[in-house]
Design a protein around this nucleic acid. Structure first.
Lengths: 239, 239
DNA sequence: GCTAAAACATGATTTTTGTCATGTTTTAGC
DNA sequence: GCTAAAACATGACAAAAATCATGTTTTAGC
């Protein structure tokens, strides 16, 4: 199990660096203090489950460090990756806010540290903080727009374009290494396939093609973009 | 152009029947009065555009009567239908809330009556009404879950299953006629294809197959479900 | 360092789906 | 009611993508 602790790596919510990147950026000091009193800090090793589809949400998770994939399971058990989270991202809020079970599973892609804010504290602050409501509304609205764009892509674009687009998305989400070209995340080919929405073999083949076309190069388990223009062209997006 | 008027078919927001089905169900009387003062009533004929992708939202639309398709345009101009609205639904709120341009176009499927609440009034009420914030959050959260499920379907299910599912969705959204079997909406084959996410010819072919399999029957421009069990099985969903 | 499992790779084949072509039916406007 | 346009339909074919099979490489655990 994950290491659940009150002390450990944790610092106070009031001084937390991740906060400024999150929906809690505008909270007042006394509201942050409420969070701080009741929050737990948790560490998850690579591959560990943070929460599970079908489970009941009892709080929200704030990613402090690390990377998390959020995937939704189809009928035959095949996963579709519907979100990739990083430091500053909040997880599990959608289910909590609509009083539903988790509609997806969150798994750490890296060693990950999260702060867990229990349900009651979250709602208590939500009740008084209109700013938080608005931040949540904005976040949901943005996610919804992204989802609609993904729907259109899945319905209309061929797998090759979507695969190229996925690489651009990974770059947007996790950025580059110091070399300014290697995408800073490790995903298996299966994960990439589940992000693109295709068979694993197809994803492998297309990535090999991209390599042959000198669009990308594989550096260990990471992908380095050699020709951004070609990649954008292959993805068929305005950039 | 649409007939924009202050009087006409409109009744007061305070007594509007559609309100109870909408996110405005918990508004106080004085808040409703604010809406009522500033709202416009508009009528759109079948096929008319209510708002256009890329345009700037200046208010929200409350559907009073009629049916509306909301579609997002792909690169090659092919539309993807991302939502179907009916009485009580609110349109255009996502773009307004995230201060973005419209990400989709709304077109009347029927002769449709809407109430238009200008931006400022909406935000004024939103500022004071915590209940409205929560309703909007719930609505967005529900839409987001639906979108995630659609994404998984598009990525994983074959067109035949998705087409059957689309018919079930149309039934859920618009219900049956008095006969208890005919889906109460008229959509062209192209619209159905754009809802399913497939080519028009493929949608036509699959619907013909469903007819041959005695799953559905075509009554004029409407679709009658003859064998619900078979349809559910074809859609491959738990129901 | 050895071994089993997982991940990656690639070929062959089949299935699914889209595209193109063509013809018929229905609808809307004069 | 006539006519043009749109919608519907269907066949033939091509392209895309999934599946199945098999082999190699890498990784993780003892």
């Amino acid at each position: 199990m994950a290491d659940k602790q009150k002390g450990g790596f944790s610092e106070a919510c009031e001084t937390c660096g991740s906060r400024h990147k999150s929906i809690f950026c505008h909270l007042a000091m006394d509201e942050l203090a409420l969070f701080n009193e009741s929050k737990s800090c948790m560490s998850f090793k690579k591959g560990q489950i943070i929460f599970n589809e079908g489970g009941h949400p009892l709080g929200i998770y704030c990613v402090n460090e690390g990377k998390v994939k959020i995937s939704h399971s189809g009928q035959d058990g095949k996963d579709q990756i519907v979100h990739l989270a990083k430091e500053g991202d909040v997880l599990g809020y959608r289910a909590l806010l609509s009083s539903e079970k988790y509609n997806a599973t969150a798994i750490a892609l890296d060693d990950t540290k999260v702060c867990y804010v229990p349900r009651d504290t979250f709602f208590q602050v939500l009740k008084t903080s209109h700013g938080l409501s608005l931040e949540i509304i904005k976040l949901l609205a943005t996610e919804l727009r992204r989802a609609v764009n993904t729907i259109t892509d899945l319905a209309q674009k061929p797998v090759r374009e979507r695969t190229a687009e996925a690489l651009l998305f990974l770059k947007e989400t996790y950025g580059f290494e110091e070399d300014g070209a290697t995408i800073n995340v490790v995903l298996s080919r299966e994960d990439i396939a589940n992000l693109v929405g295709t068979a694993t073999e197809t994803a492998i083949r297309l990535l090999s093609e991209f390599k042959n076309d000198k669009i990308v190069e594989f550096i260990g388990k990471k992908i380095k973009i050699l020709d951004m223009n070609k990649l954008i062209k292959t993805a068929n997006v305005l950039y």
